[in-house]
Design a protein around this nucleic acid. Structure first.
Lengths: 334, 334
DNA sequence: AACGACGGATGAATCGTTTCAGGTCAGGAC
DNA sequence: GTCCTGACCTGAAACGATTCATCCGTCGTT
């Protein structure tokens, strides 16, 4: 029932080798054979079986993308960028979402290894360097996304979070804020600790006396942001910071919502807020949100491109691509 | 270099058949062999080659998901639901985004057919019934997502958009609004026309005299919503509607933003707004947005479950699963 | 006429699994 | 001692593509 390359060969009156050649290097086949084979393919509705191809040539036509947080529009944009570039090469994306769960992360890496994917894009959660090393030994390269490769063993595409944190804090300081609360967590996430580090650099290198307080959250979500906002509002007013720097826009939106709904704190007059990512909803928020824009589509596209280069040249030296975020000033920092 | 099942067999001192049995039906193998094989696997770091497995048994361990609009949080949630269910079965998701482009849609269906995926989830854009029929003939079932199967030839999981449209309009009418503008488009999208149809039903079955005006957009995006809002504000004030029903939350957020930023129209006092989807950002908007919540995760999960059932029983009768949306009232409709 | 070169076509071998028809062996029934 | 029954294993065939050593004609050269 399922038609194979042999059926095509028979109908076209040529050998299977010729059919394969028509499919893969038509220039080495006579024009006559090409048309006959194409006609046969058309007539039978033949579609090449990629599993057989992959088994023989040993290389798959898909790449895996392990995403940290499928809810986050930032990652969706990154995936979009990668998917866009992949489709140009006839490559499909195997999508795995870990939701910050090491077990799921490992599970997807296993799955992708079984599939012998061409390569893996990953925004890592746990310590997966050993896993990635192992994949590489097996000829599956990996590119880290939204994460700088600490030891330089892998290529990575990320945004300079330290610089971004610094830009955010400098902006707040310049606007006259002196008591900044950094809202974010968990701090095992490199992006989170980097953004805080950047903010601290800004505070220390300022001529003014600037305090940085840390309000820890357990995740980068709207809910956690709102909860943090609630906690803040319960303090006596004199203990309030005059600015909030949220580790990402989801948190910032949650914070904003808590402050606006309570009507107890004016944004930005009493408390300014700045986020990170500039996700598509930041500009549409209660008070349009200042943020640091990441070139998310470009990140995905670039990561996929590097991955493909590494698959064709396994000896390539890993390279770290770092983009600078862009400060977007809106009403929330007035 | 790459280790195969044969290497494992040799090291464990058994035949390849036994290794395969250990992997696939351990209960039929002696305990002794099982442990020896496992030890060998461990030692060699063997990972089964899924392409070879797939070639032999003829069934892949991935399903394709063709998504209409990767930017839309609603679809991301649906994907999440599907992915969650899939991971339970050791199945990976091949992710394809069409961005409402028939060419891309066809491209992904081709790609998935080459991969001989287990099945396809799709939120269709163009008229792809013939393509899906063809896939089915080849043993690849498809489940329509967020779209009712017109001719009942395929299973589908969707939300009753007519009912939702009706609920939205009834809510506005009940709140005293009489001049409702429906903002949405293109109308080829079934969801859009259904939501409008529902609103018309509500208007006609009301005891009051209710006008429904249509403001067409070219896409369901924040930008289109904002643009529609601008156009609206340019009219003389006496021609303004007193309520806007947006075909989805992205549009609604855009509308809201246009009205709020201009400060010319009070929401909801002068103009009420209701959206559709209840995406995670609707509640965090300038004026928290009323909306119709779709059980997006559940939709994805259900669709995948049905797909798997159909792969195991190809004679199953297609079934249409329809969820009812839930009215979420927030400040934007006072 | 002999020879070499070359464009094309051929088909067997191969990739790494799963499956299945048989084979081996120990133990139980008679 | 013979036969039967299971439990367990074995190894070759098969899946559908790609590749490559060969072969076949034709044509140009000498």
């Amino acid at each position: 029932m399922p038609t194979s390359i042999r059926d095509v060969a028979k109908l076209a009156g040529v050998s299977v080798g010729t059919v394969s050649n028509v499919l893969n290097r038509p220039q080495e086949v006579s024009a006559d054979s090409v048309t006959r084979v194409h006609r046969a393919i058309e007539q039978l509705g033949y579609v090449r079986n990629d599993a057989a191809r992959q088994l023989r040539v040993g290389v798959s036509s898909s790449v895996g993308f392990v995403v940290l947080d499928g809810q986050n529009p930032f990652f969706n944009d990154v995936v979009r960028g990668a998917e866009d570039e992949a489709s140009r090469h006839g490559i499909a994306i195997l999508y795995g979402n870990t939701d910050e769960d090491s077990a799921r992360e490992g599970m997807y890496l296993d799955l992708f290894e079984e599939q012998r994917v061409r390569g893996v894009l990953i925004s890592p959660y746990g310590d997966i360097n050993p896993r990635l090393e192992r994949l590489r030994e097996r000829g599956i390269p990996a590119v880290l996304v939204d994460r700088f490769s600490g030891n330089g063993r892998f290529s990575s595409v990320s945004v300079d979070s330290v610089a971004g944190g610094r830009m955010a804090a400098e902006h707040l300081i310049e606007r006259g804020r002196r008591r900044i609360a950094f809202v974010g967590g968990p701090f095992e996430m490199r992006q989170v600790s980097d953004r805080l580090a950047g903010a601290r650099v800004a505070a220390e290198s300022s001529t003014e006396r600037v305090e940085i307080e840390v309000i820890a959250t357990t995740a980068l979500t709207v809910e956690e942001g709102a909860a943090a906002g609630q906690r803040l509002l319960q303090r006596p007013r004199r203990d309030w910071p005059d600015a909030l720097f949220a580790a990402n826009d989801l948190l910032a939106l949650g914070l904003l919502q808590a402050l606006v709904v309570s009507r107890r704190a004016l944004v930005p007059d009493e408390i300014a807020i700045i986020g990170f990512d500039d996700n598509p909803f930041a500009g549409a928020a209660a008070v349009p949100l200042s943020s640091l824009r990441q070139p998310s589509r470009t990140i995905g596209r670039t990561a996929l491109r590097i991955l493909l280069e590494e698959t064709s040249d396994p000896t390539a030296i890993p390279r770290q691509t770092v983009f600078l975020p862009e400060l977007i000033v809106r009403a929330s920092t007035g």
